[in-house]
Simulated scan of single mutants.
Amino acid sequence: MEYTRLGRSGLSVSRLVLGTMNFGTRTSEEDSRAIMDRAHEHGVNFFDTADAYGPQQGEGLTEQIIGRWFAQGGDRRDRTVLATKAYLPTGERPNEGGLSALHIRRAVDASLKRLRTDRIDLFQMHHIDRHTPWEEIWEAFGVLRQQGKVLYFGSSNFAGWHLAQAQEAARSRHFLGLVAEQSIYNLMSRWAELEVLPAARHYGLGVIPYSPLHGGVLSGVLRKQREGLAVRSGSGVWAAALADRREAVEAYEGLCAGLGEDPAHVGLAWLLAQDGVTGPIVGPRTVEQLDGAVHALRITLDPDTLAELDAIFPAPGPNGAKPAPEAYAW
């Protein structure tokens, strides 16, 4: 396993992040435990979850599954850099969502209880809260850090402007500020390159891409269809993405075949090659899928291959050939 620092912090994390959103929904608790054990065997030490994950609002089933796994012992907790999130509603009453000081305090305490731990290593805002001032948020975060309940703070789904706001507000309080941003980012969705990645690099945040295979479209879906293998349901975003860019996906799968590599692994390897990316989140439903994802660490994409991928999935912006944020310039 390869490791890197999380942004400008001193925290060492694996270059693959274990996503747990399937735990308790598409993956049984028994299989979830097996996946987490195998992650440790591979050296994956960075686990990502959220209080909203699970089939029932407010239940936090995914966090509970992880907590029961920690309770098995064997240094499971100490070997794990644990990240969770809050913002989405956990109930129907007022103050059961957002980033008010009250909800932040309640959310952290509830997650600690479900996760059966005394600390959260990385607490992430699941979304920007446009109604809560940064002074309130950073004051609440400062208390949590003083209490030892949270060690580092991060964001998710933030725009570049939001990252700037957060970091400047933290700077005014002489705080470390955010150390990571979790953003949708993959070959088919490169909008983060315009502002989010440049802002993250400027402020020293590690970028943690989620949906690295664009909902499975980059996993070799056309080949699987031809071979009669099971693929994800062709509805919603998955179907729209494939319908709009089928030719690009066909070219991508052809390139991967020429490399002798699985498209899913090439998609992960491309992210690992991007400046500022800490590591993509992989959300395996089985141990075998996790084993396959680890292979991406052994793939090195040469400049010619990276250029071919850029040609198939061009960078966004009116002048995408330029490094962002200069993609806006002429």
Rank of each mutant, 00 (worst) to 15 (best):
L11V: 15
E195A: 11
A86G: 15
H174S: 09
R114E: 01
A269D: 09
W161E: 14
T300P: 01
V196P: 02
P89I: 10
L122I: 13
A170S: 09
N186G: 11
A52Y: 01
D118A: 11
L18E: 03
A180D: 08
R201H: 04
E288L: 05
G254R: 14
T62R: 02
W238T: 15
G60W: 04
G142A: 00
M36I: 00
L6S: 07
L301F: 02
I66A: 02
E308Q: 11
T20A: 04
D262H: 15
L272M: 14
R171Y: 08
G177R: 00
I208M: 14
K85T: 02
R145H: 13
G260L: 11
V17C: 14
V221C: 13
G67P: 02
R114T: 00
F313S: 01
V282I: 15
F158Q: 01
Y203E: 02
L197E: 03
G228N: 07
R173W: 03
V294H: 06
A200F: 07
V294T: 09
L259D: 10
D75H: 12
A34G: 01
R15F: 09
W238K: 12
S183I: 13
L268Y: 11
L213R: 05
G142S: 01
K149L: 14
F70D: 05
I65P: 03
I35K: 06
G73K: 05
A169H: 07
E247N: 12
P314C: 08
W270E: 04
V196Y: 06
Q64A: 10
V179E: 07
I312D: 05
L16E: 05
A71F: 07
A52I: 12
I299D: 04
G67A: 09
F46L: 09
E139W: 12
I66S: 02
G154M: 07
V81E: 10
H162M: 09
A296G: 10
E193V: 01
N186L: 06
V108F: 06
D78W: 00
V143H: 11
V294N: 04
W238L: 15
G317W: 11
L197M: 11
L306Y: 03
Q182I: 07
H127K: 13
L102W: 13
A166W: 08
P209Y: 05
T90K: 07
L197N: 00
H202L: 14
P280I: 00
E193Y: 01
A101W: 13
A200H: 08
W191I: 11
L176F: 04
T132E: 09
L187S: 02
A180Q: 05
H202D: 12
C256D: 12
S172R: 14
R130D: 15
P314G: 05
S155G: 12
Y252W: 12
R33S: 03
Q56T: 15
A192G: 12
V44S: 08
A39V: 14
E2L: 11
P263K: 12
F158N: 04
